[in-house]
Amino acid sequence: MSSNEQYDKYFLTYTGITLPLQLVNPLDPSETQNRNTYFGANLDAEGRLERVHKVVYGEVELEHRYGYNANGALQWAEIRDDDDEVQRLEFNNAGQRI
């Protein structure tokens, strides 16, 4: 996937292994011009991560999409890899994977 997307925020990397991704080291949009790899994030109306792209050499290598339940806990996550394979994970009301 080519990345011609506009993102709400940009980051250098992430930390941890839990979902949603914990993006760290914010980047100014202009800083992505000279980077081989960065993460672009879109936020929902509540300011939570809704979509994350890992962009490598201008191509989307990895995509995460997130949905939340009424209490704000993660309800589902879809992870699309560079082969366009999608894995969907479901979570209970407490945000624990089921």
Rank of each mutant, 00 (worst) to 15 (best):
Gly67Phe: 13
Tyr10Glu: 03
Gly67Leu: 15
Arg80Gly: 08
Tyr14Glu: 05
Gln33Thr: 09
Gln87Thr: 11
Leu74Asn: 03
Trp76Gly: 06
Tyr7Leu: 05
Asn42Glu: 08
Glu78Trp: 15
Asp83Thr: 12
Leu12Ile: 00
Glu5Met: 08
Ala94Gly: 07
Lys9Thr: 07
Thr15Ser: 14
Thr13Trp: 09
Tyr38Leu: 04
Tyr38Phe: 10
Gln87Lys: 09
Asp82Pro: 01
Gln87His: 10
Gln75Ser: 13
Ile79Pro: 02
Leu49Lys: 01
Gly58Asp: 00
Asn93Ile: 00
Glu5Trp: 11
Gln96Glu: 13
Arg65His: 09
Gln75Pro: 01
Ala70Leu: 06
Asn34Leu: 02
Asn71Thr: 05
Asp81Ser: 03
Pro20Tyr: 13
Leu74Asp: 03
Ile98Gln: 12
Ile17Trp: 11
Ala77Ser: 13
Glu85Val: 02
Gly40Phe: 04
Ala94Tyr: 12
Pro20Lys: 01
Val86Thr: 02
Glu46Asp: 11
Thr13Leu: 13
Gly72Lys: 00
Ala70Ile: 05
Asp82Met: 09
Leu12Thr: 04
Val24Cys: 07
Gln87Cys: 08
Asp81Asn: 09
Asn34Phe: 09
Leu49His: 07
Gly95Thr: 05
Val86His: 01
Asn92Asp: 13
Tyr38Gly: 06
Val52Pro: 14
Gln33Lys: 09
Tyr66Lys: 06
Tyr66Cys: 07
Tyr10His: 03
Asp44Asn: 12
Lys9Trp: 04
Gly67Met: 15
Asn69Ser: 07
Thr13Ser: 14
Thr13Gly: 07
Ser2Glu: 14
Gln33His: 10
Ile17Met: 13
Leu27Phe: 11
Asp84Pro: 01
Val52Arg: 12
Glu61Leu: 04
Ile98Pro: 11
Gln87Asp: 12
Thr13Met: 12
Asp28Cys: 08
Asp44Ile: 10
Asn36His: 06
Arg51Phe: 15
Gln22Trp: 10
Pro29Ile: 04
Glu59Trp: 00
Pro29His: 01
Tyr38Ser: 06
Tyr57Gln: 05
Met1Glu: 13
His64Met: 06
Gly95Cys: 04
Arg35Glu: 05
Tyr66Thr: 06
Thr32Leu: 04
Asn42Thr: 12
Glu59Ser: 08
Arg97Met: 14
Gln22Gly: 02
Asn69Phe: 06
Glu90Trp: 08
Asn71Leu: 00
Thr32Gln: 08
Asn42Gln: 12
His53Val: 14
Ile17Glu: 15
Gly16Glu: 14
Thr15His: 07
Glu31Pro: 10
Glu78Lys: 09
Glu85Asp: 12
Gly95Asn: 04
Thr18Asn: 14
Ile17Ala: 15
Ser3Phe: 00
Leu62Asn: 05
Glu78Gly: 11
Ile17Phe: 13
Tyr57Asn: 06
Asn42Asp: 11
Ile79Asp: 12
Thr32Asp: 07
